[in-house]
């Protein structure tokens, strides 16, 4: 049994709550227990840096302090949470001025940056392992031809060693392959979906997300897979943002696990772009697809 602390983040607590349920269910299946940080708060995401540098550090530090109290490594399933927590945790560990500042602001909570912040792909790779993933896939995922979409914040964190290749990450592709799905190679793994301007500048976001979808279709995929709730929602919204947009269902990586392990996904109804066709195409356990 492996125990990790985690905080779902604001997206997984509301607009992508089905991702939270899916994540817990799949990790529990593999014996990874998640203990939710008690009374976690927003990490400040992309909003805090525009307001004040100290706010960025303090908001992220609060969750890090809570995690250190638990004494467990911290899983941050949302890419924005992950990037922010990872960068600030390292800053607290290495920069005394920052450490003193956040600890003064947060007292009686305190942190030293000792906790390791991990993303979903890392957790599957390190605590479950590719071989176990491959052995556990009961349902044939042959009909799924997926492009893995990592987005900006999973591999691009300045000053922090990346968990995967910065320009051409492969972790998710390896997992998809192990689950029996076809991981389709493409060029847009780490392109920006424009989530930062969905509300303030919709046209720009529509263009960026639309381009990613078009590229996924051109690559010959029938599904997009991601681990970031902002990317998922933004790509899922493409049908509203753009007229006649190419539209493939956008899955969370844990939903592909659900399909492989259980043959069905719980949060299917939550997809704005229907995922039903893909779900129906999955074969019975052990049986042949075709």
């Amino acid at each position: 049994m492996i125990a990790l602390s985690y905080y779902p983040g604001c997206s997984l607590a509301s607009s992508s709550s089905f991702y939270d349920r899916s994540l817990r269910k799949v990790l529990a299946y593999y014996g990874v227990a998640l203990s939710e940080l008690d009374d976690w708060s927003c990490c400040g995401g992309a909003a805090a840096p525009t307001i004040h540098q100290d706010l960025t550090d303090v908001l992220a530090a609060r969750n890090i302090a809570l995690a250190e109290r638990e004494g467990l490594h911290l899983l941050a399933p949302c890419s924005a949470c992950y990037a922010r927590s990872k960068a600030v945790s390292l800053k607290i560990a290495t920069d005394r001025a920052t450490r003193d500042m956040v600890n003064q602001a947060l007292a009686p909570l305190s942190c030293t940056g000792s906790v390791e912040v991990k993303n979903v792909i890392e957790v599957f790779m390190q605590y479950v392992g590719v071989e176990r993933i491959a052995a556990s896939a009961a349902h044939k995922l042959g009909p799924i031809r997926a492009v893995s979409y990592y987005g900006c914040l999973l591999t691009r964190i300045m000053g922090v060693p990346s968990s995967d290749d910065t320009e051409d990450p492969t972790g998710m592709d390896v997992i998809l392959d192990a689950l029996g799905a076809v991981a389709v190679p493409w060029q847009y793994k780490t392109e920006c979906c424009g989530a930062g301007s969905t509300i303030t500048d919709r046209e720009r976001t529509a263009e960026l997300s639309g381009r990613i979808m078009t590229m996924a279709v051109r690559a010959g995929a029938n599904a997009v897979v991601t681990t970031c709730p902002l990317c998922q929602l933004n790509l899922d919204l493409v049908v509203h943002l753009r007229k006649n947009a190419a539209a493939l269902p956008v899955f969370f990586l844990t939903e592909i696990f659900e399909l492989a392990l259980f043959g069905a996904i719980e949060g299917g109804g939550r997809h704005l772009i229907s995922a039903d066709d893909i779900e129906r195409s999955i074969g019975a356990p052990g049986g042949d697809h075709q």
Partner: peptide, 23 residues
């Protein structure tokens, strides 16, 4: 000023609730 304004609203929300209230 839109970006800063919206970011300010998000932080307002965190200030009020402790987490972002998207809606």
């Amino acid at each position: 000023r839109d970006t800063r304004f919206f970011d300010g609203l998000m932080i307002d929300s965190v200030e009020r609730h402790g987490r972002l209230y998207e809606l």
